[in-house]
Simulated scan of single mutants.
Amino acid sequence: MSKYAVVTFVQKRIANPIVRSVLLRGWSLPGYALLETTGRRSGQPRFTPVGDGSDGETFWIVAEHGRRSAYVRNIGTTPRVRVKIRGQWRHGTAHVLPDDDPRERQRYLGKRLSARLNAVAVRSLGTDLLTVRVDLDPVR
Score class of each variant (00 low, 15 high):
residue 1 M to K: 09
residue 2 S to V: 03
residue 3 K to L: 15
residue 5 A to W: 08
residue 5 A to I: 01
residue 6 V to Q: 14
residue 7 V to K: 08
residue 7 V to E: 12
residue 8 T to C: 03
residue 9 F to V: 00
residue 9 F to K: 10
residue 11 Q to Y: 12
residue 12 K to N: 15
residue 12 K to S: 13
residue 13 R to V: 11
residue 13 R to C: 10
residue 14 I to D: 01
residue 15 A to Q: 09
residue 15 A to I: 15
residue 17 P to Q: 12
residue 18 I to R: 11
residue 18 I to Y: 10
residue 20 R to Y: 00
residue 20 R to E: 13
residue 22 V to L: 11
residue 23 L to D: 08
residue 23 L to E: 07
residue 24 L to T: 00
residue 25 R to G: 11
residue 26 G to T: 08
residue 26 G to F: 01
residue 27 W to T: 10
residue 28 S to M: 09
residue 31 G to Q: 03
residue 36 E to I: 07
residue 37 T to S: 09
residue 40 R to A: 13
residue 46 R to G: 00
residue 47 F to H: 13
residue 49 P to S: 05
residue 50 V to P: 08
residue 50 V to F: 02
residue 51 G to L: 06
residue 54 S to V: 15
residue 55 D to I: 00
residue 60 W to V: 05
residue 60 W to L: 06
residue 62 V to G: 03
residue 62 V to P: 03
residue 64 E to K: 02
residue 65 H to M: 03
residue 67 R to C: 05
residue 69 S to Q: 14
residue 69 S to I: 01
residue 70 A to C: 00
residue 70 A to V: 10
residue 70 A to G: 15
residue 71 Y to C: 04
residue 74 N to V: 04
residue 75 I to L: 05
residue 76 G to Q: 12
residue 76 G to I: 09
residue 77 T to W: 11
residue 77 T to Y: 12
residue 83 V to C: 05
residue 83 V to S: 07
residue 83 V to D: 03
residue 84 K to P: 02
residue 84 K to S: 14
residue 85 I to F: 04
residue 86 R to D: 14
residue 87 G to V: 10
residue 87 G to A: 12
residue 89 W to M: 07
residue 89 W to D: 08
residue 90 R to A: 10
residue 90 R to V: 04
residue 93 T to S: 11
residue 94 A to V: 02
residue 95 H to I: 03
residue 96 V to D: 07
residue 98 P to N: 02
residue 98 P to E: 08
residue 99 D to I: 02
residue 99 D to T: 15
residue 100 D to V: 11
residue 101 D to N: 14
residue 101 D to R: 04
residue 102 P to E: 06
residue 103 R to F: 06
residue 103 R to Q: 12
residue 104 E to L: 13
residue 106 Q to W: 13
residue 109 L to A: 06
residue 110 G to L: 07
residue 112 R to H: 07
residue 114 S to N: 04
residue 114 S to C: 02
residue 115 A to C: 00
residue 116 R to N: 06
residue 116 R to D: 02
residue 119 A to R: 00
residue 119 A to G: 05
residue 121 A to L: 11
residue 123 R to A: 13
residue 124 S to F: 12
residue 124 S to E: 08
residue 125 L to D: 03
residue 126 G to C: 09
residue 126 G to W: 08
residue 127 T to E: 09
residue 128 D to N: 14
residue 128 D to S: 14
residue 130 L to G: 07
residue 131 T to G: 10
residue 132 V to W: 08
residue 132 V to Y: 08
residue 132 V to G: 06
residue 132 V to T: 07
residue 136 L to I: 04
residue 140 R to A: 14
residue 140 R to D: 13
